[in-house]
Amino acid sequence: MAYKYKEVANKLRDQIKAGKYVPGELLPDQNNLAKSFNTTRITVHKAIQLLVVEGMVYSKRGSGTFVRKDYASDEESTNYGSVSPIDKPLGATHTNQGKKVTSKVLELSARMPSASEANKLIIQPTDPVYVIRRVRYVNKEIFAYENTIMPTKITTITKEVLHGSVYAHLQEEGLNIEGSHRVISAEKATQIDLDTGIANELGEPIMVINQLSYLDDGQPFEISETHFPYEKSHITADITL
């Protein structure tokens, strides 16, 4: 199924690549873009969110959407618009097939989102979100600590779901995961890492992945921060040139 927001995102992407909008330039407001593409403002908003996830543009509250200053054209490199294997939110269960993946649920609660969370998830400030914290184990050995924010309107999450695979649950509900934007960093362990068994000492190195994931209709469904023990942390990526 071809979604309108993807068509708009493709056209905007092509315009930026062609130099119609240069790095650092402010894009037309969403109402004007909606008129030029003969669509709705909501569709344009989802298209821009996709380009934000891809790293081509960024939005500044009260100012609008800008082309990233560090954006480089095709001649200079990059492959905007594609989601590489490293950017796919596959989850612990998928990436450890054939192994026993279990979870210890530390928290499952609901609250109103912060302004930043509402903006990233494209929801209203009055739309509640789940707060999910759990420790994942692979073959009884600690694998990761996850802290996830997810809109409650996406699906119903229970502790039973959290003891299994959230992504599998979404797929069972007929929700198709499109991709994610990930920021991977090395950080120093804090008290939460000691409490969850990710690290043995304060300041010990750990790997952290911050992730914004979205469905195939452009709706972001998850903000997550995952901590991994440094001894078992590695990233594998398939690069196609």
Rank of each mutant, 00 (worst) to 15 (best):
R136S: 09
I42P: 09
P28S: 11
H163A: 04
T148R: 07
D70S: 05
L194Y: 01
V138F: 06
Y58H: 14
V44T: 02
D217R: 08
K159N: 13
H169N: 12
D193I: 01
T158D: 07
D14L: 15
R61M: 07
R41C: 11
A115M: 10
V208W: 00
V101M: 04
L33Q: 04
I42S: 14
I132F: 09
E146S: 08
A189N: 01
F143P: 00
V183P: 03
I16W: 02
A18C: 06
T39C: 03
E225H: 10
N96L: 02
L27M: 05
Y58W: 13
E117K: 02
I42E: 15
K69R: 13
M207I: 09
P28A: 06
Q49D: 13
I198R: 05
K60F: 05
A47S: 08
E76H: 15
T236P: 02
K69Q: 10
D70F: 11
T95Y: 12
P85S: 08
K17E: 15
V83K: 09
V83E: 01
D14P: 12
E187M: 08
S77M: 14
G98I: 12
N79H: 11
Y130W: 02
F143D: 04
Y3S: 08
R61E: 15
A186M: 13
E160A: 10
D74A: 13
Y214H: 12
Q124H: 13
M1F: 13
A9L: 06
Q30W: 10
S180C: 09
D217F: 02
S185W: 09
L90Y: 15
L90A: 08
D216S: 13
Y230E: 13
L51H: 03
P220Y: 02
I235M: 11
K11P: 03
D14W: 15
H169F: 05
D193N: 05
S59M: 15
K6S: 06
N79W: 14
L121Q: 03
L27E: 04
Y214C: 08
S109P: 09
E146F: 04
S84P: 02
K20S: 06
P125Y: 08
I223A: 05
L90I: 08
K232C: 09
D87L: 12
D29M: 00
S233K: 05
I149F: 02
I132T: 07
Y145M: 06
I223C: 01
